[in-house]
């Protein structure tokens, strides 16, 4: 199966032939960065002579780089702001968005916790330190151990924007530096609440329903789960068909591309 995928990918990539020599510059979001990195690595494993650089500086920097013509693809974890669009159009650059994946963050608790669902407001108040005991949200009388990802992670950024509405977390919130570690802490702590990418949910932790929606690939890709956002690659106009840029920002449509998106903990855009 792998070989077939590889073969298909080789054929697709070979077809693009001519445009391969020019370097491809990507800049922007630290969240989309890993996806772009994985794509770039795969492209290079087939065509070692390709020159693809992925800079992870932040969505704002990505937009600025596209406007200045410093990059071919701007990776962004949010849509372009009105101001950025105006600047781009003034300079004769017409940003086109390609949604390459969905980023869904699951709020998880210990499997023994009787609480099965929370509202976004409740989760926010837990992280703000206003709710400190599970009994306040219909659980057992047990202090809540609040676990967050480190502030430099993309998962934190998503959570901070969509759940916290950019409000400060309480000082008592604990920070861990990876999805597996967040998973391990929730798995071993009965009173814990944490959040991880959908790819890290298994039977050792329980993902809560948020605002009455179960986090699944379908609800995240379909947009009904509230703690999810699309991840973008922006190009200047729709890229020339068959060019390397075109191949790159449509690679998420291939089976291999979807597999890579999933290994990075994101949800591929499919409808099956």
């Amino acid at each position: 199966m792998k070989q077939v995928i590889l073969f298909v990918a080789v054929v697709i990539l070979t077809a693009s032939g001519a445009g391969l020599a020019e370097p491809l510059q990507l800049e922007g979001s630290t969240t989309v960065g890993p996806i772009a990195d994985a794509f770039a690595e795969y492209f290079k494993s087939i065509y070692p002579e390709l020159d693809i650089t992925v800079k992870k500086t932040g969505s704002g920097d990505g937009a600025a780089a596209l406007v200045d013509g410093r990059c071919d693809i701007a990776n962004m974890s949010r849509f372009m702001k009105e101001k950025e669009f105006k600047q781009a159009v003034d300079k004769g650059i017409f940003p086109v968005a390609h949604v390459v994946a969905m980023d869904g963050v699951c709020v998880v608790v210990h499997p023994s916790n009787p609480v099965k669902e929370l509202t976004t407001t409740q989760v926010r108040e837990i992280y703000m330190g206003k709710i400190t005991n599970w009994s306040q949200v219909g659980g057992a009388d047990m202090p809540i151990v609040v676990i967050s990802r480190d502030t430099s992670s993309g998962t934190y950024e998503t959570f901070h924007n969509l759940v916290m509405a950019k409000k400060d977390m309480a000082p008592a919130v604990e920070y861990v530096n990876s999805n597996p570690q967040a998973h391990a802490r929730v798995k071993t702590t009965t009173g814990a609440i944490g959040y991880v990418g959908l790819g890290f949910v298994d039977r050792n932790v329980r993902a809560l329903k948020i605002d009455d929606v179960e986090p699944t690939k379908r609800t995240i890709a379909g947009g009904t789960y509230p703690v999810a956002r699309p991840l973008y690659m922006f190009t200047n106009g729709y890229p020339k068909l068959g060019s390397l840029t075109h191949k790159f920002c449509t690679f998420y449509l291939t089976e291999k591309g979807q597999e890579l998106v999933e290994t990075k903990g994101f949800v591929p855009l499919t409808n099956y």
Binding site: E174, T190, G191
Partner: peptide, 19 residues
């Protein structure tokens, strides 16, 4: 510390958090 000591402290001493 995370995988052994933290759960042990929670179970043994009843700390709400082991880290």
């Amino acid at each position: 510390a995370v995988l052994v000591l933290a759960p042990w402290m929670q179970n043994k001493f009843g700390f709400s958090t082991g880290t």
